[in-house]
């Protein structure tokens, strides 16, 4: 097990280096000279040259990459071309908001998804099963930015029950909780649909297993069969799907933040792309991809720990 963990960590480090290289090179190959962007339209040739020298852009690409990695290890991701603000500082300020949104969405997804899946699997081909399956199909097909817009239209514009956007207040306050409801439902719906589908098929598969038949033959009550015997085993693949989708949710926050005007990492990235602020794009992309890889590693390790049939070789 220890060897397995060490190997997976080593793979993750290599993957992160690969990601950083891809992201760095993508920004380097992008059209437009950063020095010209920073200097603006009034900058003279010598001004631009000075900026290039200051940023180290006149060095060979590989040296620039090594410098960047050196800075990265020391927590320095460079400075925004647009605002001059430290990228690390901007990310540190915005990141908790994004994490808050992603975690809240995951809770929504797990609660709705597993409940819908269990209801569906308990009585296959019933009306409830049909409703749950329809939810799963519609949930994965609905564009989350549109769902967000519709929720705003209904709950904020027409009924005026919930605020339109923000995530400015702490989540434990009533206002903060209210602000979180619509974005979390918007982002969590498609994952809830995937989890519901997975729970249903997994529960149905487990229901046919020999040990479930044995439990029934022994006279174990239906409720215990479902909640203790079936659900525990059926949840193993569901947890994996949920874990993998948490990384996807982080990607999804980019769009949801735009819908609800939430000042998280996603908005920072979009603003960076729109204004060709490469250090900002580089920093935010690296962070999200890094977390995605890290979560996948945790899921792998958890899966191996939960399911004894997984080999560590």
């Amino acid at each position: 097990m220890v060897q397995f963990i060490i190997r997976r960590f080593a793979q993750m480090v290599l993957l992160l280096i690969g990601i950083s290289f891809i992201v760095f090179m993508s920004m380097h190959l992008a059209p437009g000279d950063p020095a010209t962007i920073i200097g603006g339209p009034t900058a003279t040739k010598s001004d631009i040259e000075a900026i290039r020298a200051d940023l180290g852009l006149n060095k060979p690409v590989l040296v620039q990459y090594i410098d960047y990695m050196n800075g990265l290890i020391h927590g320095d991701l460079g400075y925004s071309y647009r605002t001059g603000q430290s990228v690390t500082e901007a990310i540190t300020t915005r990141f908790p908001i994004t994490i808050k949104l992603a975690v809240a969405s995951m809770i929504v997804a797990i609660v709705i998804g597993i409940t819908a899946g269990i209801i569906s699997a308990r009585k296959p081909n019933s009306m409830l099963d049909f409703a749950s399956t329809t939810f799963s199909l519609v949930g994965v097909s609905i564009p989350n930015f549109w769902l967000g817009t519709m929720l705003i239209l209904l709950f904020s514009v027409n009924l005026q029950w919930l605020p339109i956007g923000g995530l400015n207040s702490p989540f434990y306050t009533t206002e903060g909780f209210k602000e979180l409801i619509l974005p979390a439902i918007t982002l969590g719906t498609s994952t809830a649909a995937i989890i519901a589908r997975m729970t249903r098929s997994s529960m149905l598969e487990v229901a046919q297993a020999d040990y479930i038949r044995t439990a029934r033959a022994k006279g174990v009550k239906q409720r215990k069969v479902v909640w203790v015997h079936s659900l525990r085993n059926a949840l193993i693949p569901v947890l994996t799907v949920a874990g993998i989708n948490f990384g996807g949710l982080l990607g999804g926050t980019i769009i949801t933040e735009q819908v609800f005007a939430i000042n998280g990492i996603g908005r920072l990235m979009i603003e960076g792309i729109a204004s060709r602020d490469f250090p900002m794009v580089q920093g935010t992309v690296l962070l999200v991809a890094g977390i995605f890889v890290f979560i996948n590693l945790i899921v792998d390790l958890l899966y191996a720990a939960v399911d004894p049939r997984i080999s560590y070789d």
């Binding site: 690969g18 990601i19 992008a30 999804g252 990235m269 490469f278 992309v285 890889v293």
Partner: peptide, 25 residues
């Protein structure tokens, strides 16, 4: 497969955005 793994390391939307950031909108 290592290259494929590397591309898989990005959430889909993020990869698309990175490419658009590089090529323009």
């Amino acid at each position: 497969m290592r290259i494929v793994d590397l591309l898989f390391a990005f959430p889909g939307t993020l990869l698309a955005m990175l490419i658009i950031a590089m090529l323009g909108t």
